[in-house]
């Protein structure tokens, strides 16, 4: 087989892998606000499940990530976290995480709130939008797919675009009071 043809086949297969990036769900899931699942007990019948159907679905999807970026401003996350650099709330573009960097942990942070001033958004914003925010928050420190992360801002640019952020190895910080936050 000649080299040219082989290259073409390989390129075609590689480009197929990027298809998820542009996938759009037009009808489902419904954009409905659902009450947060509150679990008062650690134990569950059967294996412990925190996953919802949307977990991880948006990490490599360009539309969902850019929606997350829009909502980060709309729901005033920027009011406390600035554009990731942090203000009243901790910086989200660094590698330090108080409550964990996994999608399910960030989901819990947003839906349930955190004691030192993070409001609980559960019941106020629809589930799919929370997951879009989760994916976007992760893209701030390079944890979402760089290929799909937003590469421009609608407003003035204050930092390098999310698509250019090097993936940062998450480290855990102990929960701390507002004054001595990392």
């Amino acid at each position: 087989m000649n080299v040219r043809a082989a290259c073409c086949v390989v390129a075609a297969i590689v480009s197929l892998a990027a298809c998820q990036r542009e996938k759009r769900d037009f009808e489902a899931p419904t954009k409905a606000v659902t009450p947060p699942p509150v679990r008062l007990s650690e134990i569950q019948p059967g294996a412990i499940s925190t996953k919802t159907s949307l977990e991880g679905k948006y990490e490599d999807n360009a539309f969902a990530l850019s929606e997350g970026k829009r909502l980060f401003g709309w729901y005033n996350c920027t009011g406390c976290h600035a554009h990731g650099g942090g203000d009243k709330g901790p910086a989200l573009m660094d590698r330090v995480w108080i409550y964990g960097s996994e999608p399910a942990q960030i989901y819990a942070t947003i839906v349930e709130g955190r004691p030192n001033g993070m409001p609980s958004f559960g019941g106020h914003i629809p589930d799919n939008e929370v997951w879009e925010l989760v994916a976007y928050v992760r893209s701030l420190s390079g944890l979402a797919s760089g290929m799909a992360s937003p590469n421009r801002s609608d407003t003035m640019h204050v930092k390098a675009p999310e698509s250019n952020v090097e993936a940062q190895q998450p480290v855990t910080a102990a929960p701390s009071g507002a004054s001595e936050r990392p």
């Binding site: 037009f26 009808e27 954009k31 409905a32 606000v33 659902t34 009450p35 914003i125 629809p126």
Partner: peptide, 10 residues
Amino acid sequence: KPGANMPSQN
């Protein structure tokens, strides 16, 4: 108005 930027409410 599917896709509109107002979420459905519960």
